[in-house]
Amino acid sequence: MKLSTPKRAILQCAFLLAAALMIVCGINRGEQETVWNKAANICLECIGLG
């Protein structure tokens, strides 16, 4: 499917708006704390031990 330039621009704006809303929603739910908890401790699965 080939998108015209104006249609692509509309999609880009819509996706960026959706992305911003999702990030705000995620922070509001405290997801970044879950990310930090996982990333700041040794992830046994990631290193092949879990």
């Binding site: 960026l16 959706a18 999702m22 990030i23 929603c25 995620g26 922070i27 739910r29």
Partner: peptide
């Protein structure tokens, strides 16, 4: 994860 999917969507777009 809204937080991570939103981040990837923003970077990807």
């Amino acid at each position: 994860s809204f937080y991570v999917v939103g981040f990837l969507l923003a970077v990807g777009v």
